[in-house]
Amino acid sequence: MASQGTKRSYEQMETDGERQNATEIRASVGKMIGGIGRFYIQMCTELKLSDYEGRLIQNSLTIERMVLSAFDERRNKYLEEHPSAGKDPKKTGGPIYRRVNGKWMRELILYDKEEIRRIWRQANNGDDATAGLTHMMIWHSNLNDATYQRTRALVRTGMDPRMCSLMQGSTLPRRSGAAGAAVKGVGTMVMELVRMIKRGINDRNFWRGENGRKTRIAYERMCNILKGKFQTAAQKAMMDQVRESRNPGNAEFEDLTFLARSALILRGSVAHKSCLPACVYGPAVASGYDFEREGYSLVGIDPFRLLQNSQVYSLIRPNENPAHKSQLVWMACHSAAFEDLRVLSFIKGTKVLPRGKLSTRGVQIASNENMETMESSTLELRSRYWAIRTRSGGNTNQQRASAGQISIQPTFSVQRNLPFDRTTIMAAFNGNTEGRTSDMRTEIIRMMESARPEDVSFQGRGVFELSDEKAASPIVPSFDMSNEGSYFFGDNAEEYDN
């Protein structure tokens, strides 16, 4: 783990906690998980779902989305002020799938948001429990990260689609708070800032007046979040320049895209947490497990152990491969979309394939898809080993990566060399080191050039047997250095459309 220093740990961010010791953190995270579980059980009762239907990941996603929508204050306010045809701002819903006479049927349900809020609060001892809501947002974000390569979004903001390893959390809503900021990748933060800068260039009043003052505060806050992700002084200094700019424009845009590229080699610290679907927490609570009393951590053995003992089902389209669908969801559960496939294969105990080789589309089923041909199958979400999630980018030494994705962002704290394609990355730096950030740029390029592919990161860190909950005997895996390590390699994943 990167030293926490003055930073709060993510469990504290996750639970809005002030400084807590490890036991208190485990208890408050457990409380959050228990609340999600209780809410899910109650919703299944309301909807009269069978046990099997309640364990269907598509039903879980609909129920999670309903509660997130019920608590989305800004959108609710907007919907009330701008009524649109056929949208009731006070209601929320989605597809629920039921097994009827041996076939899967889709039923569109509609609930009062007020009623959903009441059920959620009741499951969370009367609190709004925003930490639990954020947790579900991060699960949705991790699922998107594993399912889609955001080529269009990258290109629109002047970045290269091969930089997708920097895009963790790119679909997280803005209201996801400190826990959300911690899991956002460098590219995601750059993209958010670039969008602001572009608006400022096109709209003279963007930075002016009372609204402009708020915009400015948001801009500086985002700059500080991004600065905190960088691990070298030169990158941090460049972020200070971007933040202090009187009138952010093209120079800042250039600096930010430069920094994003540099992060492929001088990786930023991005938190990883295993956020599971509500249909995993519900049955665990129903079986009598007391998360608050037992304590829970999002970055240790607990999620692995929970998945070892969970039964989750998914709808499967006619030509999809259930094992591939399982891999997709497994990666999402562990926030591992940008991790090295060699490491993932070792931990999972079966070969993890790149996205383009998977015969599976996303987990969600569109409303126009034919239910007649839908089957369902068990998702295999178990693992051979477990490993500690990392909050750091690993040290800054790398190795060759593949054509589709030119770097990785480690999820697990496991000893290995970190793949990246130096030639491709360095070719993108057209040696432009003039301007006010020239000395920093020169320094950053120097550090990137001296990074050695064969150097090892996370020295001495290994994986653990599932029986080793105290992480007492690390097993340090050895990897084939020459092997392909990137998930979005030469990829044809669908595009994420909101």
Rank of each mutant, 00 (worst) to 15 (best):
A278M: 15
M189H: 14
G268T: 06
S467R: 08
E434F: 05
Y111V: 13
A233R: 04
G187S: 12
R38N: 04
G132S: 14
I365V: 15
N370L: 14
T15C: 15
F346T: 15
K227M: 06
V312N: 11
Q308W: 03
L379K: 02
K184C: 01
M32D: 01
G102M: 04
W139T: 05
G94C: 03
M222H: 05
W104Y: 10
G393K: 02
K77Y: 02
M189I: 14
M238G: 05
Q168K: 09
E320G: 06
G37S: 10
L276C: 15
R391Y: 14
R436H: 03
A131F: 05
V194C: 05
G228H: 00
R195T: 07
A251C: 11
G209K: 11
S297D: 07
E210K: 11
R436P: 05
S383Y: 06
S274L: 00
S478L: 11
Q149W: 06
S3N: 10
M163V: 14
S367R: 06
I33T: 14
N483T: 12
M481P: 05
A323C: 13
T62M: 06
R216N: 06
T424Y: 01
E369C: 07
L110W: 10
S326R: 11
I109E: 04
M440D: 04
G132M: 04
C275L: 05
R26E: 01
F458C: 07
G249F: 01
T390H: 03
A260D: 01
V242L: 14
E24G: 02
I25T: 15
I138V: 13
L110A: 04
A182F: 14
Q149P: 04
M374T: 14
A131C: 15
A336R: 00
R422Y: 15
G282N: 00
K7Y: 02
L307S: 05
T396P: 09
P354S: 11
I116G: 00
S450W: 02
V67Y: 13
E192L: 11
M481K: 10
G394F: 05
G404P: 01
L193R: 08
Q241K: 14
Q4M: 11
K91Q: 08
R382W: 10
R175L: 04
Q12G: 03
N309I: 09
E449I: 04
V299A: 11
A178H: 02
C223V: 05
L110E: 10
Y10H: 15
R441T: 08
L61W: 04
G5D: 07
R342T: 06
S50Q: 15
D468S: 10
V155R: 00
N144Y: 12
E64Q: 10
N144T: 12
D302W: 11
I197L: 13
L61S: 12
Q4I: 10
T390F: 02
G462P: 01
R213H: 04
R106D: 06
S359R: 06
P477A: 12
M167E: 09
R74V: 02
S345D: 14
S335G: 14
R389D: 04
V100W: 07
L61F: 13
L266Y: 06
T232I: 06
K229N: 14
G200M: 12
L379R: 01
H272G: 03
R355A: 07
M105A: 14
L56T: 07
G349R: 10
N432V: 09
F230G: 04
K31E: 09
A182Y: 01
L68F: 05
N59A: 03
R38Q: 10
G169K: 03
V190T: 00
G187V: 07
E469A: 12
I347Q: 11
M481S: 05
G158E: 08
T15M: 15
N124A: 11
D497H: 10
I301R: 08
L172G: 08
D421H: 14
S402I: 01
F253R: 04
V183T: 14
R246K: 15
G158R: 05
A181R: 10
L358F: 12
G356Y: 12
L298T: 06
G460F: 01
C223Q: 12
E294K: 01
P277F: 04
R261C: 06
R204D: 01
S457D: 04
G288W: 11
R195W: 05
W330T: 00
K48F: 02
I301D: 10
S335N: 03
P410V: 04
L61K: 02
F253V: 14
A366L: 02
R152Y: 01
K351N: 12
N321Y: 14
I301P: 09
E380W: 05
L154N: 07
K325W: 08
G187L: 00
A153E: 01
D145T: 02
N395Y: 03
L133E: 02
R152I: 07
M43D: 05
S392G: 15
L133T: 06
I217E: 00
K77V: 15
P173A: 14
T378M: 02
D16F: 02
A387Y: 03
N250K: 07
N309L: 11
P83D: 00
G349E: 11
E254H: 06
Q42E: 10
I201M: 12
E339S: 00
M196S: 11
M43C: 11
V463F: 12
E369S: 07
L264E: 10
T378D: 00
R156S: 08
P95E: 04
D497S: 08
D128S: 06
V312S: 15
W330A: 01
G462N: 03
G485Y: 09
S326F: 03
F458Y: 14
I201P: 00
S402T: 13
E53C: 03
Y281R: 13
M239S: 05
R208E: 04
A451Q: 13
T151V: 08
D127P: 07
L108W: 07
L315C: 03
F230A: 02
A129K: 12
S450V: 01
Y313W: 12
N142Y: 07
R118W: 07
I225P: 01
P477D: 03
P322M: 13
R55M: 07
S376C: 15
G462M: 03
G177F: 05
M222S: 01
K227H: 03
M447R: 02
T390G: 07
L166K: 05
D145V: 12
W139D: 07
G490S: 00
N368A: 08
Y281W: 02
R384E: 02
F258L: 11
Y487S: 03
S407D: 00
D290L: 14
I119C: 05
A332Y: 00
R8W: 08
M222V: 12
L306F: 12
K357T: 03
D88E: 12
Y281K: 07
I36W: 12
M196Y: 06
L306K: 00
T350C: 13
L108V: 10
I96N: 07
P277W: 10
K229P: 00
F39N: 01
Q235S: 00
R441S: 11
F412K: 03
S245D: 02
G185H: 05
T62D: 04
E114Y: 14
F253K: 04
G431E: 07
A146I: 04
E11H: 07
G37E: 12
N395A: 12
S377M: 12
S473H: 12
A85E: 11
K214I: 08
A251I: 14
R267S: 07
K348A: 15
K7G: 00
R422F: 11
G228L: 02
Y496F: 15
L264F: 07
T171I: 10
N319I: 01
I445E: 01
N211S: 12
F458L: 08
Y496T: 01
A451P: 05
I217S: 09
M331A: 07
R391K: 14
K351D: 06
I41L: 15
R221G: 11
I116K: 13
G431V: 15
K214C: 07
R382Y: 14
M105G: 15
G35F: 08
A263T: 12
K198I: 11
T171S: 15
A263I: 05
M426V: 08
R213W: 06
K113A: 04
M331R: 10
I347D: 02
M371Y: 03
N321V: 10
G86V: 12
M32S: 07
D497K: 00
P173K: 00
R261F: 07
S326L: 08
D255Q: 06
A337I: 15
E46V: 11
D480L: 05
G94K: 05
T151N: 06
N101H: 13
T157F: 00
H82K: 02
S473T: 05
F206S: 14
V67T: 07
E465Q: 11
M440K: 05
M159E: 02
T171Q: 05
S486T: 11
M448H: 05
G460Q: 14
L381V: 13
Q42L: 07
Q122C: 15
Q311E: 03
I406L: 15
S473D: 02
C279D: 07
